[in-house]
Simulated scan of single mutants.
Amino acid sequence: MASALILIDIQHGFDDPCWGARNNPGAEENAARLLAAWRKAAAPICHIRHISVEPGSPLVGDGAAFKADVAPQGHEPIFEKHVNSAFIGTELEDHLTHASVGDLVICGLTTPHCVSTTARMAANLGFAVRLAHDACAAFAANASTDWSPGMTPLDPQVIHDSAISHLHGEFARAMATDAILTEGP
């Protein structure tokens, strides 16, 4: 079975200051390294783009554009979504099934939302998932700003680490980009 690289929502809209502080400023660079390896191996690649339906979201118009380092080339498929999971409202599952893909490498933005939701759903659909934890990132805005009394807002690194911790072992193998590149597509 083939191994597909799934790049989730690596879009210009995540450069908007509304997201607040973020962890892992090298996430896009690591995603680009994975993309280069998958292209070199002619392995399956899927680009996921979030088109927001929320008023005022930075993930529309120019903000919906892919960042240059990971922009699709040639016939690499693009799946557009409006919710957290790349499988809901898209043809991603059918595409992967028809391409005989059994293993996914997932990376992108943001770790606790679209990356986590897609990884969980992929595992539940029967895909083996390798999660490139250092090719993902979280933002301060990923934490609720409407906290109940006694709750403390979380730092983006804590949000990221917590999301990865919840996925590893149950839904995915969390791995560094270098380890994934060693295993290959």
Results as ranks from 00 to 15, higher is better:
A119H: 04
I106K: 06
I10G: 00
A172I: 01
K81A: 03
I8P: 03
N30I: 01
P77C: 04
S3P: 00
L181S: 09
L34M: 03
T118D: 03
T117W: 03
A119W: 06
G89C: 13
E170S: 13
I180A: 09
D103E: 14
G126S: 02
L109Q: 09
A163E: 03
T110K: 07
G61S: 13
I164L: 10
H95Y: 15
K67Y: 04
T111L: 00
A68K: 13
E80A: 12
A21W: 08
R33I: 05
C136V: 06
V115D: 04
R33V: 04
G126W: 00
P25V: 10
G102D: 15
P156Q: 10
G169L: 09
L167C: 08
G61F: 09
F139V: 05
P185G: 07
A140C: 05
L104R: 03
R120D: 01
A31V: 07
L35T: 02
L109T: 03
S100D: 15
N142E: 12
L96S: 00
P55V: 10
V53Y: 05
D62I: 12
P156D: 09
A179Q: 14
A174C: 11
I6Y: 02
A43Y: 00
P55K: 11
A31P: 00
T152Y: 05
P55S: 08
A123S: 15
E29M: 09
A123I: 06
A43K: 05
I78C: 12
D69A: 15
C114R: 06
A27T: 07
W38Y: 06
P58N: 12
N23I: 07
T97A: 12
R49I: 09
A122W: 04
Q73D: 06
S52R: 07
E76Q: 08
P112E: 07
R130H: 13
A36Y: 02
I51F: 06
P77W: 00
R49G: 09
K81C: 02
D16Y: 06
A141Y: 06
L7E: 04
H50M: 08
I180E: 08
G20K: 11
D146L: 14
P58M: 10
A36D: 12
